[in-house]
Design a protein around this nucleic acid. Sequence first.
DNA 1: GACTGATTGAAACATGCGATTGATTCGCAA
DNA 2: TTGCGAATCAATCGCATGTTTCAATCAGTC
Lengths: 230, 230
Amino acid sequence: MTELPTSPPPDTPPDARHRVLEAAEAEFAEKGYEAATVRDICRRAGANVAAVNYYFRDKDTLYRETLRVAHECADGEGPGQPAFEWPADLAPVDKLGAFIRHMAMRMHAPARPTALQLLMREFAHPSPAAQEVILRYIRPKAFALRGILEEMFPGTDPRRLLMVGFSVIGQILFYRQNRPVVELIFGKDHVDALDAEMVADHVTRFTLAALGHGEPVTSRKVVKSSCQDG
Amino acid sequence: MTELPTSPPPDTPPDARHRVLEAAEAEFAEKGYEAATVRDICRRAGANVAAVNYYFRDKDTLYRETLRVAHECADGEGPGQPAFEWPADLAPVDKLGAFIRHMAMRMHAPARPTALQLLMREFAHPSPAAQEVILRYIRPKAFALRGILEEMFPGTDPRRLLMVGFSVIGQILFYRQNRPVVELIFGKDHVDALDAEMVADHVTRFTLAALGHGEPVTSRKVVKSSCQDG
DNA sequence: GACTGATTGAAACATGCGATTGATTCGCAA
DNA sequence: TTGCGAATCAATCGCATGTTTCAATCAGTC
């Protein structure tokens, strides 16, 4: 068990270790752990097959490390830092709206798409290596949402608030987790038309209406400007 | 390319072909296509490795066939048959409630758990072999929901109704697709406490409130009688 | 009982995988 | 230049996988 070489601080041009790490992120995200091969990863990175053994110990360690940096780079938030920072005097209702919009944006146009793709894969079928990542990545956001809901409805049954939170997150995640199926059924065009802004707006209104704030979603009609559909 | 042997009608005790098919369903559902091996499948089926080549051509064909029967057995509905059949004079609002309850039940306690697990795996990361299955399995349900919503809100912008449908399905699917993550964050006990009945009830009230029917979800508090509330 | 086709069994084959080796090259200080 | 550790490379090893083979066994028929 010798010491593994680590990369220099990120001021130099991308060295082999970084290239392998990025290639691994892409390959693992696209194909999953089993289907991705170290040969493909190294070919993609322009490195030799031995690099994965030289910089990381083996495929499994490479995967864990890839998962770790993906978690750190998925969005700009480092671990321990507050997940969201609004003006503290913001009304709870507006906090909820900001939360929804924030999450919808992050799901629709993440800072690092392949990283999020990899994490989503882990969330669907968590490997034993993913527990820590899951806890650090999602837990704070879940608790932030719960805090908002508790602020909005103090004294409400926790199970109810839990399910309300799930309703919020479930609505947003749907567009991410089931996009291929939705595109297959309704056509890619109709799905692409639903950008992050529309989704965020809809989920916010749908949720607030369900919670007794604002009017029902179907009361006001969408203004059909130039978009063609019946 | 010779003819593949097919099974006799299902009146005989489970023959090798059926056993392999069932074992394949379980293995593919648990591990995914790549990680599942034909050796494990055959060992689980109590059959020889050659059986997969004898009854099916190869692993890929076995997978497609497994997917096909999983689609047929996931719930009692055959292809072409109407996905839902209520009294036609049921009020649209009640149809929506029935749809939600039906789907929540099917997701929470499916007739054939491993089959649904396999299908959900395909929905998350569709393989080229899954398109037909997806179209036949989900499409009718999606259209049924859309029909209900159109009936409830005639003349509403289709995109809006589409997103409303996604909100409904997203809420329900969340409990299925993200159960491991939720259990990890909030604890298995708290999640197990949310049975299909509670989920169906919550999603129905949440959705109807968002659509202007019924009171907001947080207006009435849950009566914590013993454990199960009505 | 002997023939025939369907089915099963154990063994082997070919391939691609992850992992490893040992030589070679590179960067750079002495 | 020389020397030395870091980094890279082609080549290979052991192994698990999907697939194939072919003989053995079974069920039914004549």
